[in-house]
Design a protein around this nucleic acid. Structure first.
Lengths: 230, 230
DNA sequence: AAAAAACGAGAGCACTGCTCTTGACGGCCA
DNA sequence: TGGCCGTCAAGAGCAGTGCTCTCGTTTTTT
């Protein structure tokens, strides 16, 4: 079966990959709205209708790029997290934060695709949910590791009772962690992506210059909120 | 001069307003990408080229909507902030937070326009910067009021020296407030808009149900970070 | 009343996503 | 080896978009 694949399926896989590569380049320069199937076809020397043999619609091509984006971001965060000693929880936290920020700054349009406003008329298919949690899983692991190791000072407050059910999805990512810490982690999470979004989408233009330093300071404050000893 | 205006300029103002109204409705249903000059013209019973007498390009129409959005959001936050007793700083903070969240949930596409990923190829003109700071000015005033009243516990840490210049823009919004508090406020600010963005853009779908309660809890934690006594 | 400015309508250009049909090529079974 | 079926690129075409230009008409100004 591999023999039969070699001929046709191999060139098909190659072309599919070439399409996504060109599309990703277009995405990086023009943004999601400027992604044009016809332009991709033109750059490949194909006629536009031929692209539809590989991607049934523009949204399908976009979906492929989104999944790639999730995986690329997730991989960057995973690598950063695993580069630190396992018991250096502040270090792992900061490394993961820097990873997502640096990836986002390097790939602003791809970041916009996965964490920005949803592109109009586009509905994320189920294929994406597997890859979309790779980054948050890293944060969850850091926090549950830290809690297990006693490196998180238990907060004085506790979460509102109404939120007991809502914490369910997060408990799976942070097993054993009490709800009060979970909600503090969620809050830090929103601060992280809120900052990155502000920076990538230009809200900090002409306001902040030392982006990295300011970001790290903010993420230290976020770690404080969680209770990670620094 | 008002007499001469009445004839032509009045119908012009009326038509301009009608165009933006229809465009805003289209924006609310289709999103920024689905905003079509031709569709607006069609709905007005005009021919598409006539629209260009009122807005030189699609981007200009979009800019008008963006400015309107900034003003609407800013007004909502201002009203919420002034509805509280002036010395109830946690109350003012929470009210302002709820205001931006509720406005964003009620007008997701408009929120996406002003706080989401920038629409491709669109460059925000200078006209917008006047209206864009109305909401953050409210936060700045709450915090500087609170600091002046001694209602903020001075933080133990201080900000990195490198960030002294970067804090400049924020100092104007929070006169008299020390840098350490400023950066805590910025961090809370990113947590606020990070949360709202997550909720509006669907990252919390199938994850959180009691949005309002969870949001308020997170904003209380943010107030803690700033040091606002609750 | 005459000149000037503003206006709506229409045609047209270049572009988009997408569909359908046509002809050619390549891998499979007899 | 020969036929056959599926896959493929190509082309034409449809409906839609932003935008430009011109042409009469209407309104304002001089």
């Amino acid at each position: 079966m591999t023999a039969s694949r070699t001929a046709r399926e191999r060139v098909r896989a190659e072309l599919t990959r070439e399409i996504t590569d060109i599309a990703r380049r277009q995405l990086a320069t023009e943004g999601a709205g400027g992604l044009s199937l016809r332009a991709v076809a033109r750059e490949m020397g194909m006629v536009s209708s031929a692209i539809y043999r590989y991607f049934p619609s523009r949204d399908d091509l976009l979906t492929a790029l989104i999944v790639d984006g999730y995986n690329a971001l997730g991989e960057a965060v995973e690598q950063a997290g695993s580069a630190c000693p396992r018991d250096d929880f502040p270090g792992r936290w900061l490394a993961a934060c820097h990873a997502v920020r640096e990836w986002a700054v390097a790939h602003p349009h791809e970041y916009a695709l996965i964490y920005g406003s949803p592109v109009p008329g586009y509905q994320a298919p189920q294929d994406t949910i597997a890859a979309r949690v790779r980054d948050v899983a890293v944060y969850g692991r850091i926090i549950s590791d830290a809690w297990e190791a006693g490196a998180i000072t238990p907060p004085a407050d506790h979460a509102p009772e109404e939120l007991e059910r809502d914490a369910g999805s997060f408990r799976e990512l942070m097993p054993g962690v009490p709800d009060a810490v979970i909600w503090r982690a969620v809050s830090a999470w929103t601060a992280l992506y809120g900052w990155v979004g502000f920076e990538v989408f230009g809200q900090f233009n002409n306001v902040i210059e030392n982006h990295r330093t300011a970001f790290e300071h903010a993420m230290r404050l976020a770690a404080d909120t969680i209770g990670i000893a620094q």
